[in-house]
Amino acid sequence: MKPWNNRAWFLVLPMLLLVAFSAVIPLMTVVNYSVQDTFGDNKFFWAGVEWFRKTLHSERFVSALIRNLIFSGIILAVEVPLGVLIALRMPKKGIGVPICLVLMSLPLLIPFNVVGTIWQVFGRNDIGLLGGTLKSLGFDYNYVSNPVHAWVTLIVMDVWHWTSLVVLLCYAGLASIPDAYYQAAQIDGASGWARFRYIQLPKLSRVLTIAVLLRFMDSFMIYTEPFVVTGGGPGNATTFLSIDLVKMATREFNLGGAAAMSLIYFLIILLVSWVFYTVMTRHED
């Protein structure tokens, strides 16, 4: 007897249609745009791979890409360990659990543009709490004119906004570890570090994979918050790929160049996500 029924695949059909209309068809259109030039009025002219060649040789693209990779690297290096640490320190039972969970969820509920606006005001050294406090302490903090300050502001903002996601994922992972593991560790006299290294960390590997993937993809695609806070400046100091892409597509109406850039951007995300996923799940089989 056949152990499965292939007709069950029809149940996937609605999702397949949704993905087709929300992802595949737009992606196909972007591919079509990337090999053509347009001046509007739905008229297109064949350009071949020229947009790709131009993008790959453009200093503007390479700089934005490097900025994006550095930003994502810093975000992962800060948010993942911090998220794990907070999840480990969160209460396991009692009234503290719902309080901590609600507090952790709050930043995630705030829309991206509101987060940007909050931090834009918060960081201003004339009226903002952070900027004003730093100024009164003698720091010459100004994220509008100083690139380092702009970067620090964006990183702190992202850590504030998204570390909770890592915390919640890790907390769920920790909650699913049966008590028997801890009891066995206690009998063996395992130290706190040994318990973390040999029980908690291996059990967290799946949620950490998801957390790293989500945080990498989100930080690599970040747009709204830096756009609202710094607008890509000072100069181009915080112009990430997405900001540059929108500028190229909507302000310069360079659809071919923007399409080629989007596809390269997409391929990089696909490659890095695949590498992360493969490296983090290679021992599961």
Binding site: I25, M28, T29, V31, N32, Y33, V35, Q36, T38, N42, F44, W46
Partner: peptide
């Protein structure tokens, strides 16, 4: 489907 700007190579 002209908005999709199809070409023969793509």
């Amino acid at each position: 489907l002209s908005w999709m700007a199809w070409t023969k190579p793509t």
